[in-house]
């Protein structure tokens, strides 16, 4: 911060005699203005910092960074093992491959979406920031897009961060992809699957968060959606032996299925007692169906948020 902004001196400075120089500092501004793009950038940066607890009291930092640690610790452990044991651990099936790491970050994703994400929308409505934002170059769609982008970026830290760390560490250690082509392929798959999963989870979390002004209700709603969709669909498909397309309603599994398609492999999900009967495996779902199901989650979540905020805007 510059001297003018930080100084504690009074803006009224007395000169000798009766004369005074009244410097109120505030003066006209005729420099550049960044318009809508600048407004969106400011909201994205601010919301990302808010989500991660940056610039906020310590109690707000604990949960988001705990989620990041939960996601990252297994990767650090694997890299440590790979460093200590001087063999190609991936090809020996001792360490998980990149696509298999998703299982280790599900808990962090659940934690982050359930506890941290709801605050990003709820707080603005509770704090009266929404009318202020809408009095700026932002419009409703650009405000919501900025919020969604902030959540997606933050979630991508969890979905991509540990995998990028693994990729770099494995490469340095000598267990990484062979050749620049393979390396870039893995990189693209990490980025693609990370963004895809983050987008689906973002839409679902924000949709629930938009329905209430109470953070506690939003947290409960998101957790119920994540857990409920997983438990109910798993029970229906595995126990009741209904059509496996019901997995489209399972937020975690349909995201995992898309990730597997991006990696070009069948999913690792083989349920206990699965006898291979038709309609009981995620791997049997057509790729277009998996893609459509994920897109449907994003679109439905976006539609709920839009519908809800149009109503809120009308009553502001």
């Amino acid at each position: 911060m510059n001297e003018s902004a930080e100084s504690n001196e009074s803006p009224i400075a007395a000169a000798d005699g009766a004369a005074q120089i009244l410097d109120q500092r505030y003066r006209p501004y005729d420099g550049a203005r960044h318009g809508l793009a600048g407004a969106m950038r400011a909201v994205i940066v601010s919301s990302t910092r808010f989500t991660l607890g940056l610039g906020r009291p310590a109690r707000h930092k604990f949960l988001p960074w705990l989620a990041v640690v939960i996601a990252l610790v297994p990767a650090i452990v694997f890299v440590g093992i790979a460093t200590v044991l001087d063999i190609d651990l991936i090809s020996e099936n001792i360490l998980p491959e990149y696509h298999e790491y998703y299982g280790y970050i599900q808990a962090a994703l659940f934690f982050f979406c359930g506890i941290v994400v709801p605050e990003i929308l709820v707080a603005d409505r509770r704090n009266g920031m929404l009318p202020l934002y809408l009095s700026t170059p932002l419009r409703l769609w650009s405000y919501l897009a900025s919020k969604a982008a902030a959540v997606t970026v933050t979630l991508a830290v969890i979905t991509m961060g540990p995998l990028l760390f693994l990729l770099v560490a494995y490469t340095v250690e000598g267990s990484g992809p062979t050749g620049i082509g393979d390396w870039l392929t893995v990189l693209v798959r990490i980025l693609g699957s990370g963004i895809a999963i983050a987008a689906t989870m973002t839409a679902a979390s924000l949709a629930i968060s938009s329905l209430t002004d109470r953070r506690a209700f939003a947290v409960i709603g998101v957790i119920l959606l994540l857990l409920g969709s997983s438990l109910v669909t798993s029970s229906l498909v595995e126990t009741a032996e209904l059509d496996s397309r019901l997995y489209a309603f399972n937020l975690f599994e349909i995201g995992a299925a898309l990730k597997d398609r991006i990696y070009g492999i069948g999913p690792p999900l083989q349920f206990a007692g699965d006898d291979g009967a038709p309609g009981r495996r995620l791997s049997e779902l057509a790729t277009w169906f998996v893609l459509s199901a994920n897109a449907a989650w994003v679109l439905a979540g976006g539609a709920v948020v839009w519908w809800r905020y149009r109503r809120i805007e009308a009553t502001q």
């Binding site: 504690n8 500092r25 420099g31 960044h34 170059p137």
Partner: peptide, 29 residues
């Protein structure tokens, strides 16, 4: 500062003007 940025001001300018505006309304300290 944040709302000045949202209204389009560059970050450094928003920071300075936020402080100046608060001085102007009597909340400098």
């Amino acid at each position: 500062r944040h709302l000045a940025q949202v209204r389009g001001l560059p970050r450094s300018e928003a920071r300075t003007r936020a402080s100046d505006s608060l001085w102007l309304v009597g909340l400098g300290e």
